[in-house]
């Protein structure tokens, strides 16, 4: 789903990004990639391959740990750095893996309001955004509920509402379907399908990738090892097995060259 007039800049661009954690372990090594405006891209890879670390960079969360010369992260053409972090966070919304980490306020409504409040919006328009976002994820009646009393599916949708309330043009999702039951997963999938933002989805849920993402990137040990059309990558069984993945079940009943 492409948005109106194309801007020249890609939505997300990484230029040879490298990152080491404090104890010296290399999390990312020379990662370069581009995601164009309106694209929906799957980010695959085994546990510990650096997916979550990569996603945190898109939001400028690890800036103080970013070593000089460790590459560059550009969001809508703006380099992520101490000065641009605020605007970058407005552009790229991040959905965390554990909804309990992301829902840190006392009630769902307060939590959804957190982002818009940080944007400095007046109370009336904060309320409006909260209502709209909760409506969109189908949780309008649960605004007063404490996060602790929600199901995992409801928690995840509440998190999404919190991200959507900041109206980002890029959505970055970390394992959006982990821990969901089939119904919760289905609801989330159709919800994501209806959001016209650029999306980068890190996941182990290959069926989700087949359904949502025309293009995928495989990350292993902090390096990009493959980047191309989803079906092509997922049908390449040796490639998948080499990087701790497997050919998803849905594809085994499909023709390899077309959906």
């Amino acid at each position: 789903m492409r948005k109106g007039v194309e801007s020249v800049n890609p939505a997300i661009e990484l230029r040879s990004l490298s990152f080491r954690y404090g104890d010296g372990t290399a999390a990312l090594t020379d990662v370069s990639l581009r995601v164009e405006q309106g694209e929906c891209v799957g980010l695959l890879g085994p546990n510990g391959s650096g997916k979550s670390t990569l996603l945190l960079h898109l939001n400028g969360i690890l800036p103080e740990r970013l070593p000089a010369g460790g590459g560059a992260v550009l969001i809508d053409g703006v380099a992520v750095g101490p000065d641009s972090v605020a605007s970058v966070r407005r552009t790229a919304g991040l959905l965390f893996q554990d909804p309990d980490d992301q829902l840190f306020c006392g009630t769902v409504g307060e939590d959804v309001a957190f982002g818009p409040q940080q944007l400095g919006l007046p109370p009336a328009s904060v309320d409006m955004r909260v209502e709209e976002a909760l409506m969109r994820v189908g949780l309008a009646e649960l605004a007063q509920r404490a996060p602790h009393h929600l199901s995992t599916g409801e928690k995840r949708r509440a998190c999404l509402a919190g991200v959507l309330a900041c109206s980002p043009s890029i959505l970055v999702l970390d394992e959006p379907t982990s821990g969901l039951d089939p119904r919760g997963r289905r609801e989330l999938l159709s919800l994501l399908q209806g959001i016209p933002a650029t999306k980068l989805i890190a996941t182990h849920d290959l069926e989700l990738v087949v359904e949502l993402c025309p293009r995928s990137i495989i990350l292993d040990r902090g390096r990009v090892v493959a980047d191309g059309p989803t079906l092509e990558l997922l049908n390449d069984e040796p490639l998948m097995l080499r990087h701790g993945l497997e050919r998803p079940h849905v594809l085994q009943h499909r023709h390899p060259h077309g959906p």
Binding site: L56, N59, I61, R89, R90, G93, F114, Q118, L119
Partner: peptide
């Protein structure tokens, strides 16, 4: 990190 991601 989640607080920062939403502009805290």
């Amino acid at each position: 990190e989640a607080m920062c991601a939403r502009g805290w």
